[in-house]
Structures are given as structure tokens and as C-alpha cells.
Design a protein around this nucleic acid. Sequence first.
DNA 1: AAAAATTTTGCAACAAAGTTGCATTTTGGT
DNA 2: ACCAAAATGCAACTTTGTTGCAAAATTTTT
Lengths: 154, 154
Amino acid sequence: MRALPMVYLITIPELLMVTNVKEILKKNQLSITESRRKILQLFYNANDALSHADIEKLTGDDFDRVTIYRTLQTFVEKGIVHTIPTADNSVRYALCKDNCTEGHHHDNHVHFLCDECGKTYCLDHVTIPDIQLPKGFHQKQTDLVISGVCKNCD
Amino acid sequence: MRALPMVYLITIPELLMVTNVKEILKKNQLSITESRRKILQLFYNANDALSHADIEKLTGDDFDRVTIYRTLQTFVEKGIVHTIPTADNSVRYALCKDNCTEGHHHDNHVHFLCDECGKTYCLDHVTIPDIQLPKGFHQKQTDLVISGVCKNCD
DNA sequence: AAAAATTTTGCAACAAAGTTGCATTTTGGT
DNA sequence: ACCAAAATGCAACTTTGTTGCAAAATTTTT
Ligand SMILES: [Mn+2]
Ligand SMILES: [Mn+2]
Ligand SMILES: [Zn+2]
Ligand SMILES: [Zn+2]
């Protein structure tokens, strides 16, 4: 009989992670509530963007739908997460990695949507090129979303 | 008393325009119905993109909401109009000017959304630059939407 | 540590947006 | 004019998002 493969179970001390999230909330002058802690933690655990529906599923019935809407809105306002518009009309949210501040986002990176697995990626190192607009048009925000097949579904 | 300003009223013969729209429907192997004719005509009259809500207002209660949804869906499938994703999660539709065919769109131009007047422009002459994606990612569709202040609201 | 002030949450009610099934009407072809 | 196929209208339903307000939780003050 062959030996079973060795499995290393690494447990990350929750206290550390929670503290981390707490610090971020404090830094942004937000009161520490269960919903904000848990939802922000979800973003740190996920490696892709989350929709409102995703969060609703992941949190079960811990929180009311309205609370999730308001929490996401707050995070966007504070520059903690940014929104990603999609062609199918369902906004996703992802952590801001650039130093975004209250009311001012700097996430000028490209977003990728996989048609296969549905994942939304922040391509943090792919920046949006400058676009020359016709006379009279003044640019404030630019969203570049590419869809196709991701590296996992390749 | 000053003379009133001269007003030139130009009436465009409806028959001509309708025929034009009819031809486009025929070319796309779609049966000529009142809703398709009227909605397609709306797009030819408008110089900016239209949302489902816009069309609902413009057509009054001529058609059911569901018919408008289905008509737009058909137009998109046939390559007559293309969708424009927006940050506020409301899809707009605009005529395809490139030679798009059934199931294959080629509208790789930039879209502009005015924060002031809410208009959506197809910047047909501003093309989306090529984006170099990380290994393993395969590009199918690209949407570049810029928001700000348009030339009219400047 | 307790009380007061402020903020956040959950609930209910509502509005807007979109989908589906099916009977009726309209369209295109003979 | 007739028939088959396609499109429409209607009803019912789901999903998504918003608002007001009382209750609960958090922060600040004492
Ligand atoms: Mn991003
Ligand atoms: Mn366009
Ligand atoms: Zn994928
Ligand atoms: Zn404008």
C-alpha cells in the first residue's frame, strides 16, 4: 500500500488577519462593525473581484442585503475598493491597490473578464494608455474592460 | 416692432426614411414589424446612444416593455446595434457603423459618457489601442469607456 | 465603567430592470 | 385568401437597487 500524500495544513491566525482589516477600517475613520470586517476580509481572501451577489452568497444570512449595499458604497467612497463596470450590467468590486483616498481613485489599470469561469481580474500591471479625445471633450474617468479567456481556462 | 425671425421648416419625407430602415431589416433577414421599424428609426434620428428607458419614453405606450427588450436583443445579435457598458450599470445601445455581421461585432471605438448631460457618444474615429495582456490571457472583446464633460457642456 | 451621543443595522415597503411561458396577432410566402 | 412561422402583448415572476425609520451597536464623553 502506497503512502498517502503528505498534506501540510497551514492555519493563519485569525486574530492577525482581523487586526489587519481593523487597521484599514480605522485608517479610513470607519467604525469597526461585524459586516465591515467580514466583507473587507472577503476581499482580502478573494483573488478576484466580487459582485454584490457573490458577497450575499459568501456571507449567508449574516447580514441584510441593504447592509451589503451600504457597506460597498462606503468602501468605494473611502477608496478601499473600486468598481468594475461590465458589459452584462453587473458591477463588480475589487480592492484598491494603488493609494486611493477618500473620493479620489487612481486605479487606472485594465480589467479582464473571463467568459469561461466568470472571474474578474485586476491587471494591476497593465495600465490604460492615454487616449487623445476630440476637441471639447474633457476626460475624468476611464474604464478599460477586456473579456476573453483567462490564464486558468486557457 | 421688430420682424419675427424667419423659421425654415424642413420636412423629411417619411416614406424615404422608412424605406431606408426597411431595407436594413430586410438585409438582416428580419421580418418588417412596426416595433422594429420605429425603434430602428429612433436610432437613426438620435445622434447619441439610447437606453431601454429612453426608447420606452420615446415610443410612449406603442409597444410593450418586453417587445423593446426583445427588439434590442435581436438588433444586437444581428450586428445592427452594439451595447455600451456604463459605470452606473445601465446599458446603452448605438448603431453599428462598422460593418458588423450576425454574431460578430467590430466596433472597436472609444465611448464617451458626459457627466453633465448624460449623453453617450460613439467616438467612431478614436480607436482603442492594442493592449498587451499577460501570458495565458486571450482577448475577445474590449470596451473602453471614458466619462467626463462633452463638447456641448464644455 | 456607565451614560450619552452618534453611527450603523435590519426591516418593510417600494421602484426599476429584466426574464419567461403562453395565447393572440401579425407577417411572409404560396 | 390561406397557411405556417414569427413576433407581440400580457401576466406573473425574479433580480437588483433605493429610502425611511425604529432598534441595535459603536464610539465618545463623563
Ligand atoms: Mn481593479
Ligand atoms: Mn459605439
Ligand atoms: Zn477563466
Ligand atoms: Zn454633455
